[in-house]
Write a protein that binds this DNA or RNA. Structure first.
Ligand SMILES: [Mn+2]
Ligand SMILES: [Mn+2]
Ligand SMILES: [Mn+2]
Ligand SMILES: [Mn+2]
Lengths: 223, 223
DNA sequence: AATTAAAGTTAGGCAAATCTAACTGTTTTG
DNA sequence: CAAAACAGTTAGATTTGCCTAACTTTAATT
């Protein structure tokens, strides 16, 4: 790759560190978490953390947790932006189904061309969300933060709309499809079971059904 | 990359060997030619030739010239197919100008997904030529031999490539040379004059110029 | 507080892709 | 045909990304 450009691998590390950090209170993550996420081994991660530190993309000290620097975070967000725009393209333009887009976007997100993304975004009509309901960062790295909450936090008797998932694995997405839940689906929480946190929900006028706590924790909704 | 998949680099070598071989009578090429094409050094090429031989993608013996095997050729053609389809996408869909598309296509051609190309091709309406007028191989690797037609039959706005002449007289050939047209020259028909069948054509970014009907009837092109 | 468990790093090695310098094989040509 | 010129390969080094095994540091638990 051209000088100044990051390798596929470096980009994947930044993206992993970004998404793992975002879900922690202190906006940081650890060697082992990164290793698990990238299906690699801790020593490999250790090596890369040194390299990313040298490039000033992360703030990191031996044995301590890792945080993205401002510039590392900007780059990570741009990769997320590319990933999600490509997912929209694959779904809306090329008619891939939901659960097929991620793998290919994982490759496309590493194409280096500002102009390409600018034009792609325009062609797609400046979408704000990807096919899984996740927000698409702007060219400036701004992330619209909708008031998305976990389905598991929704009160009894409340209506809400599905806007995203925490888990993008094929089994989960297939289960969602099976029970007819997709991005945009409106549903009502009609009951909760204290014992195990299961939730009874209803879509439109269809029969009610029960989902596990694990399920409701992996679905994001807006109230 | 997944096992069985070729690396970026291997794919670029196959593509280079393919296009260099195609232009030779014996359908082969040499270490130095490849090195020059890929802006690398001969020892680097030597190494890769060994590797590609082991994978049975080329037929090669030390100090001899290189030829693609059947399977190597098929792979090379698929990369060319991807490259050209992406160029159409960049030009027709994203409105890149035709001289901007190549560099980005050079990256996109290495995305691994059959399904992606199948759907992209469908979305683009099964184009037969890329923005430079080069033919797009079919999914089966068939390369339209570009049926030779008379330049005078070419539609407005179409790119074509000069492949022969009807008249081989010295005056005609001298005229061709004078206006910088030779076998292989790519040109675009930018207008036609009803009155006398004259044709306005353009080569690359040079100024347009007009040729007579008698001229265009004596030039053979592939669409 | 001392011990154990876990998290994380070094050490050392390997494969891919690249380079320069030095060598060998092939071709051209006086 | 012998010498020079050219083409091509081998040797040895470097960088990146990855691994296992062994070690060190930090955290948790008794
Ligand atoms: Mn995704
Ligand atoms: Mn990726
Ligand atoms: Mn091209
Ligand atoms: Mn390429």
């Amino acid at each position: 790759m051209k000088s100044g450009e990051l390798s596929f691998t470096e980009e994947n590390y930044l993206k992993a560190i970004y998404s793992l950090s975002e879900r922690s209170v202190s906006f940081d993550t650890s060697t082992n978490e990164i290793a698990e996420r990238l299906r690699t081994k801790p020593p490999t991660v250790s090596d890369m953390l040194k390299k990313l530190t040298a490039k000033k993309l992360i703030a990191y000290e031996k044995y301590k947790r890792v945080q993205l620097t401002k510039s590392g975070r900007q780059i990570a967000i741009q990769i997320v932006r590319k990933h999600r725009l490509w997912e929209v393209f694959l779904h809306s333009t090329l008619k891939f189904s939901w659960d097929e887009v991620h793998e290919v976007a994982e490759q496309l997100e590493h194409i280096h061309s500002e102009e390409l993304i600018t034009r792609l975004e325009k062609f797609l009509g400046y979408p704000k969300f990807d096919p899984h309901g996740d927000p698409i960062p702007s060219a400036e790295g701004e992330l619209e933060d909708g008031k998305r909450i976990n389905l598991s936090e929704v009160e009894n008797g409340t209506n809400c709309q599905v806007v995203g998932v925490m888990d993008s694995s094929t089994p989960f997405l297939q289960y969602l499809e099976q029970i007819d839940i997709a991005i945009g689906t409106r549903l009502k929480v009609v009951g909760k079971i204290e014992f195990d946190g299961s939730m009874i929900i209803q879509i439109k006028k269809k029969p009610q059904f029960t989902v596990s706590k694990k399920f409701s924790e992996n679905v994001m909704v807006t109230a």
